[in-house]
């Protein structure tokens, strides 16, 4: 279980990162906290020719609140965000969900944007980004663009990021409205079997489900009577196309979407 050989680039300027990505494209991978990438390297599931380390770039390690949104740079570790004093009041959903991401020992290294880049459909941060309707800030030597979460995640570990692009940051709308998060995993710290986030909106609730489809899926629900709500949740549960695996059956996943979904919607609307 040792990685295949690669060149290692310790970037000291952002330009070096962008130039590297432009030059090497899909053969290069960004390494930040390494908590998702390193296991894949050790297992030789991933074999990049070059690793570009962005953790010595102070400009990427910032959390900034601008107007109604919070920008989290690519170098910000999960533990740093969790310890950010304003987290509870500006991003309460993140404050609820982030402790479910891995363990103390992995959050201390793993970055927020790294989890977004990895796009594991069971991961909490992509779910929260989707639930809040955040954006991913992409940058290449040629251009910068912002992609809404709903368009960023495209499937199991597949995102809208082009090979020459760096995820420079994500931004999350500061949200004071009612929100709730719940997750069911086999053990504490495991990948979610179903993770569920709910955010109050003008018309009702936005519900986001992770762990079931190939990517986090969000759906707006108006205020409904409980019978009608059960029906739409049932439809939603089936639409997610749940699968069987050793940890859970498709039916069990749908059960959790129905049960947790109803619970969270009720909680957020009460």
């Amino acid at each position: 279980m040792k990685p295949a050989a690669f060149d290692y680039v310790r970037a000291e300027h952002l330009d070096e990162v962008l130039d590297g990505l432009t030059r090497e494209g899909g053969d290069a991978r960004i390494i930040a906290g390494g908590q998702s990438l390193m296991p894949m390297l050790n297992m030789r599931l991933a074999r990049p020719k070059t690793l570009i380390d962005i953790m010595r770039l102070p400009e990427l390690a910032r959390i900034e609140r601008k107007g109604g949104s919070v920008t989290v740079g690519a170098g910000v570790r999960q533990a740093t965000l969790l310890a950010w004093p304003e987290l509870g009041k500006t991003l309460p959903l993140v404050a609820q969900a982030l402790p479910w991401t891995g363990h103390v020992q992995t959050r201390s290294r793993g970055t927020v944007c790294g989890s977004i880049a990895h796009a594991d459909p069971s991961a909490e941060l992509p779910l929260v980004l989707s639930a809040l309707g955040g954006e991913v800030h992409l940058r290449s030597t040629k251009k910068r663009r912002r992609v809404p979460a709903g368009e960023f995640f495209a499937g199991m570990m597949v995102t809208a990021r082009a090979d020459d692009e760096l995820i420079e940051a994500i931004s999350l709308p500061a949200n004071q409205r009612a929100c709730a998060f719940r997750e069911v995993a086999r053990r504490h710290g495991d990948f979610a079997i179903v993770a569920c986030a709910a955010v109050a909106t003008d018309k009702g609730v936005r519900l986001a489900i992770g762990g079931v489809a190939d990517m986090p899926v969000t759906r707006e629900f108006p205020r409904l009577e409980s019978g009608a709500l059960d029906d739409v949740l049932n439809t939603f549960a089936y639409e997610l196309d749940a699968r069987d695996d050793v940890h859970a059956s498709a039916r069990y996943r749908r059960d959790l979407v129905r049960l947790l979904g109803a619970e969270l919607i009720r909680e957020v609307l009460s």
Partner: peptide
């Protein structure tokens, strides 16, 4: 005793999928 294995026993049959599906 994986929780999913208990679903049928505890809950019986699953709610049916929506009609069109």
């Amino acid at each position: 005793l994986v929780p999913a294995k208990l679903a049928e026993i505890v809950r019986g049959a699953e709610p049916a999928p929506p009609a069109r599906r």
